[in-house]
Design a binder for these strands. Structure first.
Lengths: 161, 161
DNA sequence: GCGATACATTACTTTTTTGTCAAGATTAGG
DNA sequence: CCTAATCTTGACAAAAAAGTAATGTATCGC
């Protein structure tokens, strides 16, 4: 249960684009250098984001990338989904409908936990937009902590009840 | 951001052990067969769980594994932590104190998000014990959905406020 | 004690994920 | 139209994760 390299660096590049003044753009090499990855690697990530409609590119001498939408309309949940959809087919086929290759019975009890975790993460991520991420970092931090606080509170009352 | 193979199968084996009547145990081959993995692979996972003090083994003809503690005292957060600690060093050294190998500045804005996500996942997992997982699967499902509900509610009020 | 059973541990192989390279395609500017 | 800058794309290489094999060690039952 960890954030993959592709997810992290893809997100980092998006953050750079989100910080640009309206109308400007960045090249692959600019983004790559700032993040400490190779241009080729950045190219791959940005291409994924491009395919997914999160960024737009234009080629040629004055080319580069810019966000396809305002940063306030890009949720981290979408970013993460897109970035690991690309490299990853679901780790257990029984979750994707191909039942015949999976030995586990439907009521093994673990499946709802794994699916539930995914939802929890997606919910948390859907509460944060790129704009929040770059605008007020303290705010994001606060948001995350408040969500955590609610969870803990819920857990306690749930148990004691 | 996904559950690794090791995490899933390690947890599955624990669930099997948690379902045993007090005093009984299971061998590697029994667990392996039920989960559709090789005995060797199960051996590796159980060894990790053993090192971590979650299960106990005994060798010989009547050997096998059993939980080291009551299932009600084993939280999924601990299980997951142990299972990916083994194979994984943190994916970005800047998060672990080795700052000099990481190009990213401290205020890049992404770090708190990644760390926060980990906490959210850990918090959710710490609310579920092995006992809950095997006893009342519906209950776990409900717990997860209630946590999600709180998050969504929080998100909405937070935004509209 | 002896042999069978089963865990322990290390080394190795395969697969998956990451990252790199290189040749092609598109655009701006002269 | 030509060149330089830049994205595009597929093939390839390196690293990490997952899984396998094999050898060793402990325990039980006879």
């Amino acid at each position: 249960m960890k954030v993959s390299s592709q997810e992290e660096y893809g997100l980092r590049c998006l953050v750079q684009l989100a910080r640009l003044p309206q109308g400007e753009s960045l090249t692959l090499s600019q983004m790559a250098e700032r993040e400490g990855i190779s241009t080729a690697n950045a190219g791959k990530l940005l291409w994924i984001l491009n395919k997914a409609g999160l960024v737009q590119s234009h080629r040629g001498t004055k080319g580069g990338y810019h966000l396809a939408r305002p940063a306030s309309e890009i949720r981290l949940s979408e970013v993460i989904k897109v970035l690991d959809e690309d490299a990853v087919q679901e780790h257990c086929k029984s979750y994707t409908g191909v039942m015949d290759v999976c030995i586990h019975t439907g009521d093994c009890g673990i499946r709802p936990v794994i699916l539930g975790l995914h939802e929890i993460v997606q919910n948390a991520l859907s509460e944060i937009t790129l704009a929040e991420l770059i605008g007020t970092e303290a705010n994001v931090d606060e948001t995350l902590h408040q969500i955590q606080g609610l969870q803990q509170h819920f857990g306690r009352t749930h148990k004691s009840a």
